[in-house]
């Protein structure tokens, strides 16, 4: 079933890709092939492969139970939030929060997680900012 869904999504994607190809505005001076031909070939390959999934699916993989899936979902959410708040809160605060959350969810005890989070943030800050001089996000307090 999973492969059939993949095939459906892939086919939709291929059609969408081909349709967006037709929307490309060609400029008045262009080469013989033009900017549309190669994307159309790609869309054809994508579509053909998806059809194979639809008609000859592999046995479904073992999907994790719903709570595990939610776990992954929340981690993804935290990563997105991290990307969002990084420029505002600065590197140390956001990294402490994100690393602490991830290690807690991976099975570190809550209090320890705070320590691991702080240690990760400060450790990376020292190695990459202080020693190697990389530019990291600066927050309201300058770190």
């Amino acid at each position: 079933m999973s492969d059939r869904i993949l095939g459906g999504v892939g086919l939709t994607l291929a059609i969408f890709f081909a349709w967006s190809t037709t929307l490309i505005q060609e400029s008045f001076m262009t080469d013989v092939v033009g900017p549309k031909a190669f994307p159309l070939i790609i869309a054809a390959v994508l579509g053909a492969a998806s059809l194979v999934f639809l008609f000859r699916p592999d046995p479904a993989p073992l999907w994790p139970p719903l709570n595990r899936l939610a776990e992954v979902g929340f981690a993804v959410l935290v990563c997105f939030l991290y990307a969002k708040v990084l420029p505002e809160l600065g590197f140390i605060i956001s990294t402490t929060l994100a690393a602490g959350y991830l290690t807690w969810r991976l099975g570190t005890r809550p209090l320890q997680s705070v320590v691991v989070g702080v240690a990760t943030a400060v450790g990376i800050y020292i190695v990459f900012r202080v020693i190697l001089g990389l530019s990291l996000a600066t927050g309201p307090f300058g770190f």
Binding site: V76, C79, F80, Y82, A83, K84, L86, P87, T95, A98, A99, L102, T103, L106, G107, T108, V116, G117, T120, A121, G123, I124, F128, L134, S135, L136, A137
Partner: peptide, 29 residues
């Protein structure tokens, strides 16, 4: 459980170091 968050954070640091844009970080996620 300690290593994996560090891997994630170093990945973010690397990509942010190149472009400094949080759009790129979201694309990476």
């Amino acid at each position: 459980r300690i290593l994996m968050p560090v891997v994630a954070m170093i990945s973010f640091v690397g990509i942010y170091g190149i472009s400094g844009s949080s759009f790129d970080l979201m694309v990476m996620v």
